[in-house]
Design a protein around this nucleic acid. Structure first.
Lengths: 202, 202
DNA sequence: GCTCTTATTGATCAAATGATCTATTATGAC
DNA sequence: GTCATAATAGATCATTTGATCAATAAGAGC
């Protein structure tokens, strides 16, 4: 059961092989944590451990590549446009944004790698949250304030509360591994609805 | 700078020493993660690594003791009583509960150990969440439904949304290490208020 | 002050792990 | 088919790490 037909040496172009490694590494480290061993990863790739070091100078180097792959392009450039689109009620914009946003990040890999790296104190996490706030949440907050007018809309801390309530669904599912609704859309929309209701937003 | 006056051997009663170890272990593992080494822990205790094995059969055994110490008695028996106390409006009950609950769990140690062990798949986490739901959240949900009457109160998934929005404050602070309000009470109360408002609860 | 119990130390083992280096061989170019 | 390039394997090193055990000495009781 140890090494079956493992001696079939297959040769790949460097770019292709590199991507194979990063892909599998993302899946692997999201499962077992950032301290997963290079040996176990190489086994899952059907490849020698030493091969990893032909593509990455160190394990930290490989992890950095994983972070980049996982974080990169998760924040769609369409979302700031959507949030600023005043032809739609803010409520509808918020719903669409969070439907798409949760669709993008509610995956086993993303949720867990984000948590693992957050706990490890990765600077990348704070940078990501900073971008998210600046590009999506602060504009959303401003749009809601504008729509609320004299009634006084939400402050950023309120927006973070909305955000947290929604993201927590993913945490329950992928970090705590407890049952959640199969379809995320209904609870997400309900959360946005309640939030808008409480601020009297259209 | 290595070992100063480290050869001062101090003797403690077993119970006392055991508690010293568990206390320091909780602080240690919450910082560096569950893969922190027994050697580094023993250094912080000013004690030999082998001493740890005089009190715990294995590292897993020590970790279990840490989990127990961190989780035990976090859920106050007063809370179910508070939640069921119909001499107060549900809104007020919910506020008090979450003020006290966040006061109990919003610590560096608790938040991070809970995350670390959650990611590690610890059964203890799911059991804790099960207890929390059964003893606090489900009764709270029922009380809110009762108070809402014909208007139709929240479902459990709504309660989880309220809960998540509040807990997320602690996650931001202790896991992601990003700025949060110094005083948790205002955002917590605001979240409960919005939630109750949206369900038309007194 | 002496003795006895046992909390604690120091040395050590075996396995695991990140990393390196040379030998091998698959693949494309001609 | 032959050759040269370089992708890959295999062996190996130096640390790290969980765990064990005999030796030591701190502190209580007499």
């Amino acid at each position: 059961m140890a090494g079956q037909a493992a001696n079939e040496r297959k040769r790949f172009a460097p770019d292709e092989r590199r991507q194979m490694i990063v892909d599998e590494a993302a899946a692997f480290f999201s499962e077992v944590g950032l301290e997963g061993t290079t040996r176990e990863l190489s086994q899952r790739l059907g490849v020698t451990q030493s091969l990893l070091y032909a593509y990455f100078a160190s394990k930290a180097d490989l992890l950095e590549a994983v972070f980049e792959r996982v974080y990169l392009d998760r924040l769609s450039p369409d979302w700031p446009v959507l949030i600023a689109d005043r032809s739609l009620p803010v409520r509808e914009r918020a719903k669409r944004f969070y439907r798409e946003y949760t669709g993008a990040i509610f995956t086993y890999e993303w949720m867990r790698i984000f948590m693992f790296s957050g706990l490890a104190g990765a600077e990348l996490n704070r940078r990501y949250l900073g971008h998210l706030a600046k590009l999506m949440l602060e504009p959303l907050c401003a749009e809601m304030q504008r729509a609320a007018g004299a009634k006084g809309g939400p402050q950023m801390e309120d927006i973070w509360n909305l955000h947290g309530g929604i993201v927590y669904i993913g945490i329950r599912k992928f970090v705590y591994c407890v049952p959640t609704p199969d379809d995320f859309a209904p609870p997400v929309e309900a959360a946005v609805d309640r939030f808008c209701d409480s601020f009297g937003l259209e």
